[in-house]
Amino acid sequence: MTGPDHARFHEDTAAFLLGALTDGEQRAFELHMEQCPECRDEVERLRPAADALPRSVEQIPAPDRLKSALMDVVESEAREDPARPARRRRLRDLLPGPALRPALAGGLLVLALLAGYGVAQLSTDEDQRTIAAKVDDSRVPMASAELRIEGEGDDGAVLSAEGLPDLGGRRVYQAWVLRGDKVAPAPTFVAATDGTGTVTVPEDLSGADAVLVTREPRGGTRVPSENPILRVDL
C-alpha cells in the first residue's frame, strides 16, 4: 500500500536518511511517510546502514573544557528547574525546626553517608556491569567469557572471551541475541593466536534474554548451525 505521490517521494528515502533533503523537502517527505507504509518500511529497512555511518568515524577525544562548559549550564538549569529535584526538596522539607536540628545531626550524617554510598553504587551500576558466560566444557573446555554492558544495554555490549580454539580460515565465532524463542544474528569474530576474542554486540539488549556464541562458516549465518558454546544470561 502506498500514499499519495508515492512515485515522487519513493526515490527520496535514502536522501532523507542521509540528511540530504532541504528543510522543505524533509518536511514534505515526513508528511508523505505518515500516509505511506511502503516508504516507512523502506526507511526502516535502510536505517541501520545510515545509523552505522557515524560509527566509521575515527574517534578523537573531546576537549575537557567542552564538558565543563556544558555541565555549568546543565547544573544551573537543573537548579532553576522546579520540576526536577523533588527528592532533595522533600528531604529538606522533612527537617525539623532549628531547635531540634543539633540532636539530629549524627543521624543525618549516617543518612548522608548511606545516601552517598547509594549514589556511588548507582553510578557504577549505571556505567557498566559484567556478566560471566556459561561455557559448554565438552566443546570448548579451556574457554571463559564475560559480557560487559554499558548503561542500560541500549548501546549493546562487548563480549570478551579467552581460551578459544583457533577455528582455521573457514569458520568463525558468531554472537547471537536471544529474545524469547527468536535468535537474531550479531557480528562474527575470530580468536587471536593467544585464544582471546572480542566482539561488539551492537544491538539494543533491553529486553533480551541472553547473548549466545556459536561456531559458523566464515561470513556468519542467519540461523545458528549448532547449540551455543557460550551463553550469557541477561
Binding site: 526515490e11 528515502t13 535514502a14 542521509l18 541501520p48 546502514a49 568463525v172 565465532y173 562474527t188 569474530f189
Partner: peptide
C-alpha cells in the same frame, strides 16, 4: 544521485547484516 544513495545504503545494509564484521 538519488539512485546511487539508495543503492549504496542497500549494499551497506546487506554487508553489515551478513557478518561483514570487525572480527573478520
Amino acid at each position: 544521485v538519488k539512485g546511487r544513495m539508495r543503492l549504496g545504503l542497500e549494499k551497506m545494509r546487506l554487508q553489515l547484516a551478513e557478518g561483514f564484521t570487525p572480527g573478520e
